[in-house]
Structures are given as C-alpha cells and as structure tokens.
Design a protein around this nucleic acid. Structure first.
Length: 286
DNA sequence: TAGTTGTTTCCTGTTT
DNA sequence: TAAACAGGAAACAACT
C-alpha cells in the first residue's frame, strides 16, 4: 500500500523488519482538526479500527504520539495491549485512565478515524511496505492561514506538548509492546520542519495556501513560486524570523541541489523540481 | 565539549 | 536595470 503524500513512515534503513514498529513519524500537526483529518486520510484507505490487530493499534498509537510530538514513554503502552475491537470499545474515560492527559488526544484521534474514514479494503499496510524516511515532518503548513494575511498564526497553534504531564512514565514495557527505546530515536531535525517539506506541504495543500506556489508538472515534481516573498515571509513566520526573504530562502533551496532533494531547472525563474531524495510529494505516495 | 546538520546571513558575480 | 540565480564563506542553534 502507499500512504498519503507527505505522510511517510520514518524508519531507519538499518532497522530490521521486525523492528519496524512506528519508529518516528515526525509529523507534528499542532492543530487538532488538521491532525484528525490527516490521520483519517492516513488510515482511512486501509482498515476500520475495529479490525486492527494489536500491532496496528500500536502503530496508530505511536503515530498519533509522534504527530503531537508526545514522548512515547509518557504513556504506558501495556495499557494498549488491545486489538482494534477492544480499542473501539473504550470510551473517553477509559482512554484517560489508560493514558492520562494524552488519553483525550488518542480518543479524539480514534473517534475521527472511526467516523471519517472510508473503509473496506483489507490490505492494511505491513511494516515492510511502509516507505521509510528519517526526517520527514508533516509540518504545520497545512494549517489554515488567517484570511487577511495568508500567514500562519503560530499563536493559534495547538501546543499539545505543553499540556502533557510526563507523570506516566513507562515502567516496564509489555512483552510484545513497542520498544520505548525505539520510540525515543532522535532525529537530527533541530528546527523542526525542513524547508523543502514546508514547501512540499504548501503544494500538497493548495486550498489552504492559495496562490503561493503551484505545480508546473505534478508528475515530475516541478513547481513554481508564484509569490516568492510571501512564501519567504511565511517560512520566516514559521521560524520566528521576521527578516526572512526569498533571497535567503532560495539560498537554502539551492543547498538542496547537492543533497538531491531538489534538482535544478535551468532557465526558468522561480521554478524548482523535487529530487530523488525528496519524499512525500508524489501522487503515488498518497 | 567538539562535531554535525540545516539552515541563515552576507556577499559577489552572472543571467534573464 | 531589476529581479532572480548561483554558490562561497561564515555564523548560528539545536542536536549527537
């Protein structure tokens, strides 16, 4: 199976198959409704939560935690040694009992999956066919912009981390539960979302970012900046850098050529192309 | 504490 | 002539 574009599982290539529990979904939506819609898209094409195996429950659990940037050790995984049917039978109180303050987030996520999905297929993805990517964030770029500015309003972001009480440290993992060490794998992504991912996610969500960047050739990954300075300011806003300009942004973009995240498009101004190391932009990755 | 990474900033020269 | 491109160099912050 393939996942939604921009939502690529992140598992180091060195991790063996049986280790390929959700190691690092680095997606970090900060807005609950966006998160839920994303999760719906992510899972809806596969299998109703009722039909999940224990493994799939853990997959969902960890992905949800990663999305909210919640340390996986902050909830006792052994409390989720359940299959999908048991999980779906849990009510809100059960979730808060099992996961403390994180329970409400998990409940919300599951509820959304249960009601917003389109199920019926039975080819739930297996660890082996999950595309791997170490540092993919699904950034906040899909957050709705303020009408008047088209820019992020970071103050509106839902900072779930700050609401988590780290008082539910996993004392001992359930024998078959995801390895907490694995969930603590650190990725070198000091500033959160990478620029190219930020750009990618604007492209993937044009309805939320009208007229900033557009695809020139979707299948080839060619895109063009329509409002280069606006994108730069948007990026600056995200990075809390009011002095960001397109000139600086484009310099950062050019560094991606060497890493083959972007390819040069000669002779065309404001046009870039995703390279072979850019993930999550292809329609086939959806 | 040093090294790494991913920018950010500044700059000069070139191309469109 | 302005805007954009190209890329070197140094700085910076977060992280390993």
């Amino acid at each position: 199976m393939v996942l939604q574009a921009s939502c690529v599982m992140s598992i180091p290539a060195t991790v063996s198959v049986d280790n390929q529990l959700p190691a690092s979904w680095t997606t970090h939506y900060n807005c609950a409704d966006v998160t839920s819609s994303y999760m719906s898209r992510l899972w809806s094409q596969d299998l109703h939560p009722q039909n999940w195996t224990k493994y799939q429950v853990w997959e969902w659990l960890q992905q949800t935690l990663d999305m909210h940037q919640i340390d996986a050790t902050s909830i006792p995984f052994q409390n989720f040694d359940l299959d999908g049917r048991q999980l779906c039978n849990m009510n809100f109180q059960d979730f808060t009992r099992a996961a403390g303050s994180v329970g409400s987030i998990l409940f919300q996520s599951l509820t959304d999956l249960k009601w917003n999905g389109q199920y019926g297929q039975t080819d739930m993805f297996t660890p082996g066919d999950i595309k791997t990517e170490i540092e993919t964030d699904f950034p906040c770029s899909v957050l709705p912009f303020k009408e008047e500015s088209n820019f992020y309003n970071t103050s509106e972001m839902f900072d779930i981390k700050s609401s988590i009480q780290p008082n539910t440290i996993l004392s001992s993992p359930a024998p078959s539960s995801p390895d907490p060490k694995r969930s603590q794998i650190k990725r070198h992504n000091p500033r959160g979302t990478h620029l190219w991912e930020f750009i990618r996610d604007i492209l993937l969500n044009p309805e939320r970012n009208p007229g900033l960047i557009k695809w020139e050739d979707r299948s080839e990954g060619v895109f063009r900046f329509l409002k280069s300075e606006a994108v730069a300011q948007l990026w600056g806003k995200k990075k809390n850098n009011s002095s960001m300009t397109y000139e600086k942004l484009s310099r950062a973009m050019r560094y991606y050529y060497k890493r083959e995240i972007l390819e040069r498009v000669d002779g065309r101004r404001l046009v870039y192309k995703f390279g072979r190391n850019a993930r999550g932009w292809r329609e086939s990755e959806k």
